[in-house]
């Protein structure tokens, strides 16, 4: 049971590719793998803790103010995480600039607390949250790997493909560092996912029919 909550969101219920949550940061921070990794770790920690706390007090949260209460708790965790990052990993926090703060607005966090943590006990809620965080991390790392490798020829900062600027053969595809490429890579990733797991494809709203060839006189 526990393992299912951790493993489902990795592929079958991946928050980014299946539930369409957390897209904004998936576009913005995937230009390099190290920033993607920091964002992934930060988001996983925040969402797990938030799910745990909100689940613990869920019985006492009045319905009318539930969103504001959840947001307050999430934002507090994000501000603390941001301050910790600035204090102990200043170089990385400079590179991430506002995106750590934007974890507070990441749909995955509020989406999971609203959909799951509000209605389930703390331990399953935290496992579900951690699973979603890991699913998000997986997508982010894959996209970042593609974008960094083809956009700059590096992986985690290590030069893998020798660029022409350094006397090699590789001409970096600068489009990879622009956001449209993130959209397109995500689109292709979803296509691959749905080709592998056909049951993930969306139900058609109406049936497409093959046009019958008209009889010619």
């Amino acid at each position: 049971m526990a393992l299912k909550q951790l493993s489902d969101p990795l592929i079958d219920k991946n928050p980014v590719a299946v539930h369409i949550l957390g897209i904004c940061s998936a576009l913005a921070v995937t230009t390099s793998m190290s920033t993607a990794l920091t964002m992934s770790v930060a988001l996983t920690v925040v969402v797990t803790l938030a799910a745990g706390i909100i689940s613990a007090i869920r019985v006492h949260i009045p319905n009318q103010i539930r969103i504001i209460l959840q947001l307050t708790i999430i934002a507090t965790l994000v501000i603390v995480a941001d301050q910790l990052l600035q204090a102990f990993a200043f170089g990385m926090s400079q590179r991430l600039t506002v995106f750590v703060s934007l974890i507070a607005t990441n749909c995955i966090v509020l989406g999971r607390t609203e959909a799951y943590a509000m209605h389930n006990p703390p331990v399953p809620a935290m496992l579900d949250a951690m699973g979603n965080g890991l699913g998000y991390s997986l997508v982010l790392m894959v996209v970042a790997a593609i974008r960094e490798l083809f956009g700059a020829g590096t992986l985690f900062g290590f030069q893998v493909l020798a660029t022409q600027a350094e006397g090699g053969w590789f001409v970096p595809l600068r489009l990879m560092l622009l956001a449209p490429s993130a959209f397109i890579i995500l689109g292709l990733l979803i296509w691959a996912l749905r080709a592998w797991r056909p049951w993930l494809a969306e139900a058609r709203e109406f049936a497409l029919r093959e046009a019958k060839p008209e009889a010619r006189p």
Partner: peptide, 8 residues
């Protein structure tokens, strides 16, 4: 100090 688009 700058907070421009990462990578660009």
């Amino acid at each position: 100090e700058q907070g421009e688009t990462p990578g660009l």
